[in-house]
Design a protein around this nucleic acid. Sequence first.
DNA 1: TAATAAATTTAGACTTGTCTAAAAAATTAT
DNA 2: ATAATTTTTTAGACAAGTCTAAATTTATTA
Lengths: 216, 216
Amino acid sequence: MNTLAEENYLKSIYHLSLNDSNVSTNQIAAALNTKAASVTDMLKKLADKELINYEKYQGVTLTSSGEKIALHIIRKHRLWEYFLVEKLHFKWDEVHDMAEEMEHISSVELIDRLDKFMDYPKHDPHGDPIPDRDGNFKKHELQPITALRVNETGIISGVRDHSTAFLQYLEKQQLTIGKKIKVTEIIEYDHSMILEVEQTKIHISREAAKNLLIVI
Amino acid sequence: MNTLAEENYLKSIYHLSLNDSNVSTNQIAAALNTKAASVTDMLKKLADKELINYEKYQGVTLTSSGEKIALHIIRKHRLWEYFLVEKLHFKWDEVHDMAEEMEHISSVELIDRLDKFMDYPKHDPHGDPIPDRDGNFKKHELQPITALRVNETGIISGVRDHSTAFLQYLEKQQLTIGKKIKVTEIIEYDHSMILEVEQTKIHISREAAKNLLIVI
DNA sequence: TAATAAATTTAGACTTGTCTAAAAAATTAT
DNA sequence: ATAATTTTTTAGACAAGTCTAAATTTATTA
Ligand SMILES: [Mn+2]
Ligand SMILES: [Mn+2]
Ligand SMILES: [Mn+2]
Ligand SMILES: [Mn+2]
């Protein structure tokens, strides 16, 4: 169907599109750890296949068939991550690299049965939504906890930074998906926050706070 | 580590070695659906990596590190097949192609946890033994049912032909792994056999009988 | 054993995906 | 508005894996 490289490009373009509707060559190169010249080559191939809209120097957007493929890869990635955590008991910071490989397993029937086997989970271990077989998912509105004021509460529902370091840090602080938090103090000086989670107070930097997402 | 192509070559060489200790270029080409010239190119690469013993025109054998890799791929293939049948309820004739892709997922930790999750199965859905993490497995002595005489019994434990057509045929006849069979008659004329399986009589050709394996 | 056939290797080419270096276009700063 | 900088594309090269056609080696047959 599509090559592994093509799938990775489409997925990256999709993720980058969430921030900037038009995605640049350099952004893709940075995301895929490759060089701009290589990206240009691939963009031509993807444009020939009508998976992206591409005009020289103008950046790219996904076509609807390109987006459909990207969402299917993301569906597979997130379902496998869920499997690894819920069935094989990996930690949430250990599963991403394995899922990067598993997302390219091609069988649609396999992924639909995996979905059923796990009872149709709606979110992956990092709180990201899992598209259904038609590519649909409900994007719940997440906000960084920096949006909260003192005494306001929220439920941890996602992360903006998926790095191992950040995920491990959060786990050690008990700041995991589903926990209810309350802001008890915001330090004027550096905008760091003191949170209350299950009766304990936790002090986190503004940097961390920006990457921890909640629903109110 | 090793490329997908290298892994497929090593696996093929391993399987072919079970019949002829020395494996020829043409045998590999036939097994991998490729051309002899391509095989020669790859054999040089594998020999450089000391995964095979290769001398021009003389055929190849696996080195012990080549065999170790091959057995690890086979372990992954068979564990994923078991997963697909036991957990996702695919039929035994549907899983091979999916496992051909999944066997290349690299994480050792993943496959060890999958093994544990399924409670360390010893055989895949086709009766083939699953090597443990060190590559060890017990090869039970299987015989084609043509080795049986009238009134002798055996337990179906494997197949020599893994084709979809044969697997589907066997399933339709209830001739599945674990069933106890008794030979009630051998037809002189064409050496076809009449078997008794769970009180029903089944007539199978010599061709089929040669590919159906039992333990006595 | 010499001729013929079969198996294997070599030579040269092609595709995919990548790279570096240089050229061209677009953006930003003066 | 021109110059300097950044971004993007082009040109040419390379590695992996494959192919066809031709050459070479090995095996078979007469
Ligand atoms: Mn991930
Ligand atoms: Mn995730
Ligand atoms: Mn198989
Ligand atoms: Mn099998």
